[in-house]
Design a binder for these strands. Structure first.
Lengths: 347, 347
DNA sequence: AGGTGAGAGGTTACCGGTCACATGCCGACT
DNA sequence: AGTCGGCATGTGACCGGTAACCTCTCACCT
């Protein structure tokens, strides 16, 4: 069924049907009613493919992301999807595989001029963003403030560095004589922003900067990475690259007999919905991923439809949320027994 | 740039280019090489829209879901996406809003014959599934075994009922004299499968069936719902509709001074990645949402390309994972006086 | 009264592919 | 030798829309 069928039933030309459908040009009230009636009668709905092919407005966007299991990526995606849906765009999702070449990425895109949003918090995302063909309209949520002005109007980011610095300063203000860092993987080969912020604060305080502990993204990786570090009783404050790592680290601490926050203070990053309900509840940096995603779409919308798109909404600054997992530094170093722990069941 | 440009450069007709691209019909080795060379030289990539419009294989699927913030839905989506990507399908995602009518849903679909997967664990998903126009190819991940044979070959589900029954039986085997249930919202107006399974087990044991507690999906809702119930010390075992509710309930128990598992055993549902690392780690029913999602796509693939699609892979049965949050029932005198529990003052 | 301009609607080309069919070529069979 | 059949390729129609352009009315102005 096509506009021709509708046209025949309504007794008009196919073009008039097209006019009624996208409603930009004027059509007399009588014929519009006839056409609408025919549409309803036949249960007709326009073919988006044909519309797009014929040069109509695309109103579709593809999100490139690498792992939707991560809270940050998932929440950003949610914000993007929500904003896109509100604007009447349809959303495609395309998950990046580590081994993908830039050719693969380009072939995924359905049409020249396709609109794309990239969640580039990690390495595959960053690589994909760099590899996109020049003819695609693209915005991205990235880890750090871009260096070029051009990119600055196409990318959104959170001020991780400042937030990590504040979190570290807060720990120091509690009397801790040092703060260790359990890092998430960086999006580039360079030092990540959160790591930088943590280093900034230590440097300001004139403290030595220990080697950051390298973790992954999951509670398990946090658990494994933290086990050896936390066996050292002189470690009394730990900043973690995300809440999941913090969860794993807290587990490791518990198995080592170290009480949180009495013996050890832990701070996370993200403020996942679970963070407030953990035992102990987690002091963490709240990041407005959803707002970031919405803004990323807002930027894209501006690019695609400069005349009609609403201004890009602001998103929230990172904010340190104080909960139970942080407390004053212990007065004396406690002596803990180190029994080799076995990981708990589960992946 | 189109196949015509490629054809001109390669010195062949547009149709030959088309043949090379989708490779179904035979082309001589010489011309194929010429065409491929021209494609590479021009950086040409086919326009998916035109391909689909012209009646080529669609190889695209839209997922209808209502809330990607929930672990179950997100994990299922991940499985679907992974399987679809492996088969060379592109994936669209369309989030359902509660107020959507079936007309809205239908208009979202880009073309007649569009392939759709529905994540129908909750009410909006179930409604959307029922409201889909008859001309779309659709499979769904649903909460319960479908009643009609036809649906049974188009839907996948997990045996929630059996799993809930087993979990409840396990709690009873620990000596608990009753098990309460903190429910997630049901996908239909009828009693949910997990609730049924819990009731089955209590009935088998000849125990009274208390009113199930109604929760939402989040830790917060679990916390709020459980606060009053857990003030009653005679409640020693709680089954929760998902891990997030369990997390909230455990928090409520802690605030009420009840130790887990000494005073209260808690069992969750889902086995989220965090469950193993909570304090205490959570006994829960592991559900293979990703496998379910993969199978859902497998079914769809069979429908669309019966000759070439691989057989649908099995997914794992629900499995009870024992961890720290469950333990023997507390040793109390049988004649414990039950003073009516007073709910603590509001938050 | 004739020119004029705007609104309503029709006609035709085109977007970038695929499909059905026609054609040219060659070796093989009768 | 003539015809047949399979293979490689070209030709034209078509998928379902939109855009550009054209025509026809009719009210309004000079």
């Amino acid at each position: 069924m096509s506009i021709w069928d509708v046209a025949r039933v309504a007794g008009v030309s196919h073009q008039t049907v097209s006019r009624v459908i996208n409603g930009r040009t004027r059509v007399s009230e009588t014929t519009r009613a006839k056409v609408l009636h025919a549409i309803a009668e036949l249960g007709y709905r326009p073919n988006r493919l044909a519309q797009a092919l014929a040069g109509g407005p695309v109103r579709a966007v593809t999100v490139l992301t690498s792992d939707t299991a991560l809270y940050g990526a998932a929440a950003t995606l949610r914000g993007m999807e929500e904003a896109a849906r509100a604007a009447g765009f349809s959303v495609g999702i395309s998950v990046l595989e580590p081994a993908m070449t830039m050719r693969d990425v380009a072939w995924r895109l359905s049409r020249p001029g396709e609109a794309v949003m990239v969640i580039a918090f990690d390495a595959p995302g960053t690589r994909a963003l760099a590899a996109l063909p020049p003819d695609v309209a693209v915005t991205a949520a990235v880890e750090r403030q871009p260096e070029t002005t051009g990119d600055r109007s196409r990318q959104v980011w959170l001020d991780d560095r400042k937030a990590a610095r504040q979190a570290t300063q807060y720990l120091l203000s509690l009397g801790h004589r040092g703060v260790h860092y359990l890092a998430i993987p960086s999006s580039t080969s360079r030092v990540a922003q959160r790591t930088h912020g943590w280093m900034d604060a230590l440097e300001d305080a004139g403290l030595p900067i220990p080697e950051p502990l390298q973790g992954g993204w999951t509670p398990r990786s946090g658990y494994l990475a933290a086990r050896s570090l936390l066996a050292d009783p002189s470690v009394t404050a730990l900043l973690c690259g995300n809440d999941d790592l913090a969860l794993g680290a807290m587990r490791a601490a518990r198995e080592l007999g170290r009480d949180i926050p009495r013996d050890l203070s832990v701070v996370g990053f993200d403020d996942t919905p679970a963070a407030a309900f953990l035992n102990p509840s987690l002091t963490t940096v709240r990041l407005d991923f959803e707002g970031l995603g919405r803004a990323c779409f807002g930027l894209l919308h501006q690019m695609l439809e400069p005349d009609t798109a609403p201004p890009v909404a602001e998103w929230a600054e990172p904010a340190l949320i104080l909960r139970e997992s942080t407390g004053p530094a212990p007065q004396t170093a406690t002596n803990t027994d180190r029994s080799p722990a076995t990981p708990p069941e589960g992946e």
